[in-house]
Design a protein around this nucleic acid. Structure first.
Lengths: 189, 189
DNA sequence: ATCATTTCTTAAACTACATTAAGTTTTTTG
DNA sequence: CAAAAAACTTAATGTAGTTTAAGAAATGAT
């Protein structure tokens, strides 16, 4: 039970078995079918989700009605709409399963409690958010320095397996262009 | 000494005076003139910087030779090239003072030490990185959903004082367009 | 105050990518 | 395994924003 998360946590800190037990009492597992929603626009993002198996995506629908995927989370990554999660206010985003997905969830009412009862986890989450911030800095740099085609080529080189996992239209919006343009890029090869 | 930082930290946690003393022994203050570099491309980002007064920017020079500003930090924000700072490897970025700026610095060799000696600070930095991640999520959403003109109008509405503080060419690149286009937008009004 | 430097503006020509729309292929479901 | 739904492709047309280049205005240094 929850061993995927324990293994991940233990890469950063050492949890005693007492602490593991406390933690276990405050977690929940969920399973989502492909295309199921963890929450929709207007809902409150009730939990911070750790992906055990599968793939989630965070997206919104823009003014023209197009889905814009802004984040993916695969195995061992956390995902949530943080603003909605922290302040428990309605989200502007959807979180959807891009594949059949198993998650471990920390619900909002247990988030502070977990950190109070197991202060060591502050270090774990500090590390997690630090990594997320690092990833953002790199992503923003790519968005600002490369053309659409370069972003695709580069992403494909860095994460070839991942590119196979999700529909192209999700990837296109994540990389900041239209599915039609992605087709065009691919046709060139 | 360092009171700007203590005040900020105390919004998140309570530091004892013992802890403040330990912390003080591991911090350094620096002052930078407008346009001075905290580090340049190829240098290692030696410290994580807390802005006491003034404004810093993180930017890189793209393949066409244009400066792309990817982050600003004003009073009470932290800034660094995290990848370079954490792994102590050469940076792809410049960090430059956009104004005469006073900072408090945590140098890399003291970063882990500070967190070990004052574990409470894990919570502080968890909160800081959590906020930064939240800001990134919002920023990415704006980048993906608004036109250049909307981004400018919106930013101007949210941070009117800040828009006055930095040259337009820095703002233009931060918002993802050229200075010429910004002039065009402004001419419309 | 004056000169040099930096920043901002204007406008014409250009281009990377979006839009629209129709057709094709692949995947899902009963 | 057939029908429906979802995902992908192609191509013509359109446009938001870039590029280039020159001049004007603001700021800084002596």
């Amino acid at each position: 039970m929850y061993s995927a998360l324990y293994n991940h946590i233990n890469k950063f800190i050492d949890l005693s078995s007492d602490e593991q037990e406390i933690l276990a009492s405050l977690l929940k597992s969920f399973s989502f079918k492909k295309k199921a929603y963890l929450h929709e626009v207007g809902d409150i993002c009730r939990a911070n989700y750790f992906v055990v198996k599968g793939c989630l995506r965070l997206y919104f629908v823009d003014i023209k009605g197009a889905e814009q995927t802004t984040q993916f989370a695969i195995e061992n990554w956390w995902i949530s709409d943080l603003t909605s999660f922290i302040f428990q206010k309605p989200s502007d985003f959807y979180i959807q399963a891009a594949e059949q997905t198993e998650v471990i969830a920390i619900e909002h009412r247990h988030y502070d409690e977990i950190l109070e009862k197991i202060p060591k986890l502050e270090k774990y989450f500090r590390s997690i958010y630090q990594k997320l911030h690092q990833a953002s800095q790199i992503r923003i740099k790519y968005l600002y320095s490369q053309t659409a085609e370069e972003r695709y080529t580069n992403f494909n080189k860095l994460f070839p397996e991942f590119v196979q996992r999700v529909p192209q239209y999700m990837l296109a919006s994540y990389l900041g262009f239209t599915p039609e343009f992605l087709s065009k890029i691919r046709a060139k090869r």
